[in-house]
Design a protein around this nucleic acid. Sequence first.
DNA 1: AGTATTTAGTCCACAACGTAGACTAAATCA
DNA 2: TGATTTAGTCTACGTTGTGGACTAAATACT
Lengths: 390, 390
Amino acid sequence: MAQAVRHDSMRARNLALVLGEVSRNGPVTRAALAEITGLTKTTVSKLVGDLLESGMVTESPPPADADRSRGRPGVAVRLRGDRVAALGLEINVDYLSVCVMDLTRTVRLRRTQAVDNRDSSSTDVVRNLRDLALQAVDEAAAAGLSVAGAALAVPGPVDPAQGLVHSAPNLGWGDVRPADLLDLPFPVLVDNEANLAALGELWFGSGMPDFLYVSGEIGIGAGLVFGGALFRGTRGFAGELGHVVVDPGGPDCRCGGRGCLERYAGQDALLDAAPDGLLDGLIRRLTAGDTRARAACEQAGRALGTALTSAVHLLDPGTIILGGIFAPLFPWLRGPAAEALRHIRHVVPNFAVAEAGPDAAVLGGAGQVIQQVIADPAGHMPRATAGLQT
Amino acid sequence: MAQAVRHDSMRARNLALVLGEVSRNGPVTRAALAEITGLTKTTVSKLVGDLLESGMVTESPPPADADRSRGRPGVAVRLRGDRVAALGLEINVDYLSVCVMDLTRTVRLRRTQAVDNRDSSSTDVVRNLRDLALQAVDEAAAAGLSVAGAALAVPGPVDPAQGLVHSAPNLGWGDVRPADLLDLPFPVLVDNEANLAALGELWFGSGMPDFLYVSGEIGIGAGLVFGGALFRGTRGFAGELGHVVVDPGGPDCRCGGRGCLERYAGQDALLDAAPDGLLDGLIRRLTAGDTRARAACEQAGRALGTALTSAVHLLDPGTIILGGIFAPLFPWLRGPAAEALRHIRHVVPNFAVAEAGPDAAVLGGAGQVIQQVIADPAGHMPRATAGLQT
DNA sequence: AGTATTTAGTCCACAACGTAGACTAAATCA
DNA sequence: TGATTTAGTCTACGTTGTGGACTAAATACT
């Protein structure tokens, strides 16, 4: 339940409110902020003063735009990108990935290391990632950036509250707590790859506030973004679209069920129709009009449409966004999938390709940490509650 | 986004915090409230004073329990049930229903009128309900209760933000705004029957904070309660379990899709196996061991299990609670449904019967209004912001 | 140019609210 | 009866936001 409101939390909330508006509206004058937030000019001035001092924002001497002409021009306040940063991390089947992102959500550093993680122990994999991460932190520090936190994307169901990876079958992991193994000098949030990719799509893609992001990797996951925030379910396992039942009489799935979507539209099922088992080969065949490839896509599209029909009825997402391997295959999947979705009684949700690209998960993770900083600047300010008390 | 925090909203929040704890913990002393909320005794005293004055709480001269012996005994503060009330309303295919509930969530009045609403226009149906409602308000007023608001349950998808019933096929309704037609002197919240029944189960049933309530009526709906609140989806249409695809090659559904759960486990499908098309007859046959009846239940149970498998993967509910027609049929449905759910990889959710009974929706609706009053006492206080200002 | 007007931002006295600790009240224990 | 313990109130005070006066810096009008 909600906590008691004291004067300091009142301050913290208003600080977050102001910083949030600065983040949303780009450079804004104090006067505009007062108007938007409903606070008085005085209060906004004081709050902005604190934010300036903490290095979260700067003033832009030129007032940026000049759409109103009369009166004293205001000084614009905008996010300051050269102090606070966040780390995005990703462990996937065949690569490790890091990025450093500043407060303005600009990527400052981006590094991917191709490794086959299937045959390594979780400890080894995480150790590798740790090296990458520490190197990134050093380089960020050299640029004056201090890292406030990190987010790690993992392919498989995660309980983000406890940071527990329940099982990442494609990595051969059982219950693992990667944050403990990483042992970094700042908090590390662990979440499912599809969830963080969905957030990536939120901030670096189309930018709509409500959608279901479908992540076609080796497994099929989905992240439901709802009012700009993730819906995670009771234990954090929501969005396992890959195991929605498409046909109860269908083939067995490694999850123990039968006829799961993954068996029809997972990477393995799709790339079966590729000459070399690679995506590029499949796309070549599709463009060449290969019958078998087209049939595989049509089957996958139909299955996807069926599963999404169930998902739409249960979750009521605003839009469906296809990401991962589904993005390049969109031209061939769209038709059959849309055909199945066409029958929904109420408003049929839009259907779109992801725009954030393959980096979505790392970017989304780092973006989530930035989001947390912006949502609670008081908790991340240099000497917020510092002081010598009894 | 969050609103600015001023002194008065700080007060409002702390008032809500105190009242919420009084509601959760029953009679509590001010000292205990101070401990629970983290506010000082002084502040709690002042807040309780306001709540006393507004008629939301009373003092219980006897301190109720006596588990600690030393020291001055405190005066317990508890919700006051004889001032503020809420109205629960329901329109269903063959009845109208009203209840008056006080702040302590005690039902003060309960009235159901059997009418076949299938052949009446929405205007007529709502006019009937209005009469019932006004009568209930009068009787409540006679008992000293003033109605703070109402909630109306309707069978079909509703956009609660706009109060718009999108289509209630079983009533023959198109887009209707019942709150406008009701024209009552307090706000009326309109929501889907399954959603409000889920809330009914939350407050008058098992009392767990996270579950998926499955409402088996003519249609099959579901309400997802998550941390004590409803998940509604982008437009409020989430939880349409009845149209989750059980078999893409199955029979056509009136929703335009194929093989929806409703075709296998809806009331029509189940009561087909009853001699007179009534539930009691079906149950008699089932207890008698009738083969056809048992087969119908087994098919329905299997289909329910399949649909719930998809729902569990997408929504990750804590528990599944079967309500409506499914509650009495639970003994025969449980086996086949659980069999399908058994295969889920992660934690299999519990499976239980609803305890709130057939009144769940009206009770849940009224309870929701009470919830709103408790969550914002300042907004419902007699002369909260009254005063003569410029 | 010079003055009026407009808008931005700051200053200051004040009000609202919660806090800390002294103080009073009412019970039990010795 | 008096010490102890716990509940609740009272008072001086600190923090935070407010409202309006005031200063600053631009354009518009004459």
